[in-house]
Amino acid sequence: MIAITVDLFVKYFGMFMEGMGYTLYMAAITVFFGTIFGTLICLVRSVKFPPVRWLAVAYVEIVRGTPLLLQMYLAYFLLPEIVNFDISKMQSVLVALIMNSAAYVSELIRAGIQAVDKGQAEAARSLGLSSVLTMKEIILPQAIKNILPALGNEFISIIKESSLGSSFFVGELMTVRSLLTGALYLTIEPLLIAGCLYFFLTFTLSKLIGVFERRLAVSD
């Protein structure tokens, strides 16, 4: 089995690398846009008018309370009905991933901001800084140190969750596994290789985040 696995990896190295490339691409796009939309959701949550706030809360709760695979199917079937142009499978899956991630990221940002001591805002306000200046100059620079490592972990989560995209054959690592299993009638070996590659990605990244986190702590 080990011999077959190694053989398979060597022979289809290019395909696996391409799959890994798609996986990383999906995670990068998702975290990038997820952070932008997550920030927006966070802003909406801080609006003074309650009904607007509730919309954001409802969004976060619903997204977090339903399976990502379901959201992908919904995007896959629903988006072509809504938009007037051709939308690829990859785009549908990415939209679902981004909308899902945005809900989680908005919570990360909220938690990062809430973790900053309340006295910091009071001190800034007592000096006469507006709430906007206080947020920009005092709270966010400190919250960022809590948020950045959490975003790194979100990136790792998405690397794993993007595997659900294989249900739609979008080309990421698990799709490569499905293709090889279908073509070669090998079940275990492609799984082992995909598993090792996923682990390689997540383990390396989590170590990098650890180093980065210690750097941030030093400058405190």
Partner: peptide
């Protein structure tokens, strides 16, 4: 204003 817990800006 001066606070019990100083609230100096650590960054």
């Amino acid at each position: 204003m001066v606070f019990q817990h100083f609230n100096v800006f650590p960054h």
